[in-house]
Design a binder for these strands. Sequence first.
DNA 1: CTGAAAGCGCTTACAG
DNA 2: CTGAAAGCGCTTACAG
Lengths: 349, 349
Amino acid sequence: MTKKTSLKDIAQTVGVSTALVSYVLNNQKENRISKLVAKKIREVAEELNYRPNQIAKSLKTNKTYTIGLVVADISNPFSSSLARIIEDEAEKFNYTVLFGSSDEKPQKARKLISALLNRQVDGLLISPPEGYEPQLAELQNQGIPFVLIDRYFPDLKTNYVALDNYAAIHKAVQHLLDSGYERVGMVTFHTSLFTINERKRGYLAALKENKIPFRKTWLKELPIDASGSAIAKAVDDLLRGPKPVDAILFASNTLALYGLQQINALHLNVPEQVAVVSIDQAESYNLFRTPITYIRQPLLEMGQVATKILLESIKKNNTTTQVNLEGELVIQDSTRPVEIIVSPTVPVG
Amino acid sequence: MTKKTSLKDIAQTVGVSTALVSYVLNNQKENRISKLVAKKIREVAEELNYRPNQIAKSLKTNKTYTIGLVVADISNPFSSSLARIIEDEAEKFNYTVLFGSSDEKPQKARKLISALLNRQVDGLLISPPEGYEPQLAELQNQGIPFVLIDRYFPDLKTNYVALDNYAAIHKAVQHLLDSGYERVGMVTFHTSLFTINERKRGYLAALKENKIPFRKTWLKELPIDASGSAIAKAVDDLLRGPKPVDAILFASNTLALYGLQQINALHLNVPEQVAVVSIDQAESYNLFRTPITYIRQPLLEMGQVATKILLESIKKNNTTTQVNLEGELVIQDSTRPVEIIVSPTVPVG
DNA sequence: CTGAAAGCGCTTACAG
DNA sequence: CTGAAAGCGCTTACAG
């Protein structure tokens, strides 16, 4: 390995102090430095293929220009899409991002964040697991800048950017009812996460306002790490029996993915036999024979706004910014109104 | 912000030197340090909520325990799945990963890698864009440990882990021909990337060995950043005209995703009207009405092996390891043999 | 216009 | 068993 060249090396070959080299390469005090020396310094730096050691710089300046991103699972499209947006936004400000997956486990998130903080990240973007309030409060006490993303805790006064889940789901259910569906089921997670419970609340409220008596068999609440077969089973339960639901609302992309597979397996036509709405968009929905109505999460805005708030907060950490974004209901064929269905056996292909 | 506690703080409150504190907290020279002092030091460290400053440590030891991951696009499921595997593998050795997306652009990759190197990553995992040989050679000259992943350059003696693309595609085409399909088309990318061209070579070789005269209208080569509609158009071309293909091989998950959408749009039945094979698996394929035959990329092995080679190479950078992994052909309904199709109008749902 | 010097928070030979 | 000291590669008041 060719030895890395340092400021000192440049200083020595040019015959000046490291201070001067530092000033020149950081474009500081430009007016006070002789153009000739500056030119020479830049030339030598180029020649020796100088790379500033960001680690040394960080030690001195207490800034790493690195942010930590904690998601549930980077391999989930929701997380990776967000990661990409955050990467691009951070890059605009010369920030780089370290990431990690919590797998919805507070212990893992804790360990991860600890590793990120040891590396002196300037701040964190966190999609926290259930029950993570205490650690977040701790981060606040330590004055560490962070922004929650997608999820937040109403009792904690933190920065966050999330979907207005209540309104989004309410709108979706209202749309189903307006379209003539009467027995709307929901597949969601059983968790204490506010975000997820807001979805349930929106669902129940919409039913109530429309004077539809809710039946508890319509609501399937699964563990947050539910397997594909558990999800399939829940969908199966909703669709069998004497009084099956005529519409299903999926509370996440994973639920929809496995749910739709089960609907495929049952050879049911959408929306003739069951209407479908999902939260989150996924490219994969396009492969389903009927285009799926979904609540579009404003991922671009979510990632960009969260990154901006974080970078602001890193500069001067004194305000709290909370943003609830509106979800757009993208209406497609999977919720076609009941009335205009011409025949119950519309060709499928 | 409560001031961070340093080794010095601990040393002062305990009344010892920072050297001693460092030894104790790093479990060094254990036999030479009095148990009492060691205990006291640990207690105070705990009490003051000490976090080692990894930046300072790195400056001294020249190790950051961070690796850089450069993919084409972190939001692509192929990349994000790999990222997750690498994250998990790296974590076992207390490494954290910084990532970035190159968007298939050498300039962007270069800038990214430069940023990662300035942060003193211990090594790099790179899925390089087309034409990246010169920069890789440069990295080698500088003695920077790296491993190429998914893609490599045959003329460059570097570490790499990739699929044996030739063999995998050859196997897939042979399977199609064995199943009775005779006019096998391929949708791939037009690029100088060896990996991609190996796929084309496997396709052409399999046709030749089976004495099938290749027609150039069967092969669609798209720009690597082709839009969904360009992909749809290519599929359309293959399937229209007097002599359409009866099977299509998609050379990537993105191509398959848009290609299948177009097949949906054309209301064609798979495999009755056109058989389909794809490289890469994607959860989304499950939403297609016919389960898709695909070449399973050994992602787990790819990510794990690449990470291991990199960590080895970081320890002592003196050997070159090149690994070609075998792809498994997962045969599903989309390539059902022509002979056993009972009726041309099998029900679809 | 330029340099000597201190210091960021650690590690690690070296001396005792 | 323990400490004083040098040094990793930078930045930045301060002095001239």
